[in-house]
Design a protein around this nucleic acid. Sequence first.
DNA 1: TCCATATTTCCAAAATTATGGAATTATTGG
DNA 2: CCAATAATTCCATAATTTTGGAAATATGGA
Lengths: 116, 116
Amino acid sequence: METSNVIESFSALAQETRLAVFRLLVRQEPDGLAAGELARQLSVPHATMSAHLSVLSRAGLVVSRRQGRSIIYRANLNHMQEAIRFLVRDCCAGHPEVCGPLAESLIGYTPNQDKE
Amino acid sequence: METSNVIESFSALAQETRLAVFRLLVRQEPDGLAAGELARQLSVPHATMSAHLSVLSRAGLVVSRRQGRSIIYRANLNHMQEAIRFLVRDCCAGHPEVCGPLAESLIGYTPNQDKE
DNA sequence: TCCATATTTCCAAAATTATGGAATTATTGG
DNA sequence: CCAATAATTCCATAATTTTGGAAATATGGA
């Protein structure tokens, strides 16, 4: 992933509604959610939600497909994976004391822990 | 890490100069770099760099200490680690097909690979 | 075809962020 | 104390982002 896309992706997630949308879509995988349903669940006007979805979409963080009258949005987990990889590479570069614990926490990961 | 700080951190990194500053500081660990040196190396006016550093600092991504006339900035790797952990938790939640490969690439990490 | 539903596009106002010269605040050396 | 160096703060301008009502576009069913 090149830095211009990294910036676009961080910028997309650096907004309350959009971060909430992305997190919600991750939890809805692999089904996704319709645009209107996202607007309703997050109490955001249609036009505003549409603008946010287009930002997330341009960044590559979500993908959409039409299904009847609705447009279903899904989180693009591969893209997120690439973004994380970018951060890890820069962050760990020569600093295994950071990388190590991260890797451990990934290995020991169990889906049940959901605390902040 | 709470979502407000996550947003602040992403927002801080979602800007060309600031992302460059952070990456440079990671490579300079653990010595850090003076504010003026950062401005010079990245060809940014002092006042502008100072504003960017204060954004990174407020987000917790960098820390600073005075040394004589200079103020030395360092990357806060622990903070970055927390930010990555947040992403991974949301991204992997119930999706080991994403989490697994990430963990592998962390385990198999060697500092020499530096491709984009 | 006509109507209801789902979304997006248009557009303009409000809010936030970025920029950088000039002034101000610290620190060190003579 | 004074001059030089290093940074930050002040402040105004420019640029970008966010917001959401109203209009336009697309789809499916009667």
